[in-house]
């Protein structure tokens, strides 16, 4: 009965190396990458918040790391990732209504995400600085 135990190795999806890259596919793959990447900014924030709750001394240590150029690099990257993921999510909610699924609209929405991300990122930074 050795044959019955043999594991069926099916191909894993999505087949990134098989399909030709298009705007819709590139923007979709990037939603996943930004989503997973956002864990870094999230963990940095949680560490900082937890440090503030624990003690002023521990906060000083963590705050030094979080507000260094490296911390700001992660936070600004995360901010752009949030807006990209946000716009991608809105696109999914729109698609869930059954609309906007034709190629022309999908392409337009893809470009909307690519252009909207830096615009919203800059606007958020300006809003935080109080301009």
């Amino acid at each position: 009965m050795a044959e019955a135990k043999r594991e069926i190795v099916r191909p894993l999806s999505p087949h990134l190396q098989v399909y030709r890259m298009k705007a819709s596919m590139a923007t979709s793959v990037l939603i996943r990458i930004t989503g997973v990447g956002l864990m870094s900014g999230f963990i940095l924030f949680v560490w900082w918040l937890l440090a503030a709750a624990i003690s002023p001394e521990y906060f000083a240590f963590v705050n030094g790391i979080v507000t260094s150029w490296f911390g700001y690099l992660i936070f600004i990257g995360s901010l752009a990732a949030i807006w990209y993921h946000y716009l991608g999510g809105l696109r999914h909610l729109y698609w869930d209504t059954g609309k906007g699924l034709d190629l022309e609209t999908v392409d337009k929405l893809s470009w909307g995400m690519v252009i909207g991300t830096p615009v919203l990122t800059v606007l958020t930074i300006l809003a935080i600085w109080g301009i």
Binding site: T67, L79, Y86
Partner: peptide, 27 residues
């Protein structure tokens, strides 16, 4: 995602304004 669509911009503003402030202000 609908919940986060409303909460995230609000949170970003609160956190962005607090980041870089002294410990007492953060708490």
């Amino acid at each position: 995602s609908i919940g986060l669509a409303f909460l995230m911009p609000t949170f970003l503003f609160i956190f962005g304004r607090t980041l870089g402030q002294p410990h007492e202000v953060v708490v």
